[in-house]
């Protein structure tokens, strides 16, 4: 984990939606951790599927990439891989900086 910020550019007209979006991503992170802890593959698949769809729709490409990896990992029951992706997601949310234009 490093401290370098990751800049994401989001369309100006979505600005007022972003606070709720980010709150939901942090809730999603908690849900991912809980599902990983209980080994709930279906829940992990669904959460990954949702991340894949919504992430880059707002401009957060990495969220969609991680979501697809988590969804795929759940299908193959790759718990270590999913754990690594969740850590990566945690790091990303901590460092992401949003620019509107």
């Amino acid at each position: 984990m490093n401290d370098k910020t990751i800049t994401v550019t989001v369309a100006k007209d979505l600005e007022d939606l972003i606070p709720t979006f980010m709150t939901n991503r942090n809730k999603e992170l908690e849900a991912l951790r809980a599902a990983l802890g209980s080994g709930d593959m279906e829940q992990l698949r669904q959460l990954g599927h949702r991340m894949k769809g919504v992430g880059n729709s707002y401009g957060f490409e990495l969220i969609s990439i991680l979501g697809k990896q988590i969804e795929d990992g759940a299908k193959t029951r790759d718990l270590p891989g999913i754990g690594a992706r969740i850590e990566e997601y945690t790091d990303y949310l901590a460092r992401v900086k949003i620019v509107y234009e």
């Binding site: 939606l17 769809g53 919504v54 729709s57 707002y58």
Partner: peptide, 15 residues
């Protein structure tokens, strides 16, 4: 069922 997804779609259309 995902409010974030529904929200972004609606915003793109209303714009």
């Amino acid at each position: 069922d995902d409010p974030d997804m529904a929200g972004v779609l609606a915003r793109m259309l209303t714009q």
